[in-house]
């Protein structure tokens, strides 16, 4: 009786909320600093570059790559367990259940592109230096801008709805009132984070 799937599921939940949630918030904050101008953004990156490269790579692998790969690959199996039915049962929670999975599919494709191009190709292989100018040049393409905005919205919704389901899965919010309050707070946070995203994305191209 080891119940592997039980522990994997709980690990999936923890890893998504704490580690990947952290990655998302880090991205939001770093990019939000771009609203203060190129100097502020580049200064922030310079701060990060003060971490010695081997340590930084270790952090990237342990706190970014491994959790994303685990959450993503195991998540695909979870998504395949569902037969989404918001058409027949159009309740708000059921829509969010389906959206959690739709956003997940988009994020799989988006993250392969985002990490593959920026981190692995540009920074890793071409040795390009990540800077304000680079981010600006990437998202100044209107199609890339829209796909990036959708990617951010998908990640933000997935994270915020994940807070609600985390509270249910871990038995934190038990009754309908508590669950409703958590849901409203999470969706409020989702709206705020989406607005912040739009603000800094437009500040790059303004």
């Amino acid at each position: 009786m080891i119940n592997v799937s039980f522990y994997l599921r709980r690990l999936h939940s923890l890893c998504g909320l704490l580690l990947l949630g952290g990655v998302l918030v880090e991205h939001l904050l770093t990019n939000a600093s771009a609203m203060g101008g190129p100097e502020v953004f580049n200064q922030g990156l310079a701060m990060m570059e003060m971490i010695p490269p081997p340590v930084f790579l270790g952090i990237e692998i342990c706190l970014y790559a491994v959790p994303i790969l685990f959450h993503g690959i195991y998540g695909i199996f979870i998504a395949l367990d569902a037969k989404n039915n918001p058409g027949a049962y159009g309740y708000s929670r059921n829509w969010k259940f389906a959206l959690q999975r739709y956003t997940a599919w988009y994020l799989v494709a988006f993250l392969i592109w985002h990490v593959g191009y920026l981190r692995i190709y540009l920074k890793g292989i071409m040795g390009e230096h990540i800077s304000y100018a680079l981010v600006q040049s990437v998202i100044s393409n209107p199609i890339v801008f829209v796909l990036y905005a959708l990617g951010m919205f998908a990640a933000i919704f997935h994270f915020c709805n994940g807070i609600t389901t985390f509270c249910m899965t871990w038995g934190i919010a038990k009754g309908p009132r508590a669950q409703c309050v958590v849901d409203k707070i999470a969706m409020g946070l989702c709206a705020l984070m989406c607005l912040l995203t739009l603000a800094f994305m437009f500040s790059y191209i303004a």
Partner: peptide
Amino acid sequence: TGCGNSQNCVEVCPKNIKLTTYLAQLNRD
């Protein structure tokens, strides 16, 4: 762990059993 919190169960239960509340309690337990 198969529960994905779609909460359709509590919406359709003809006996109005607070299924999601008890599922959350079971998650705790």
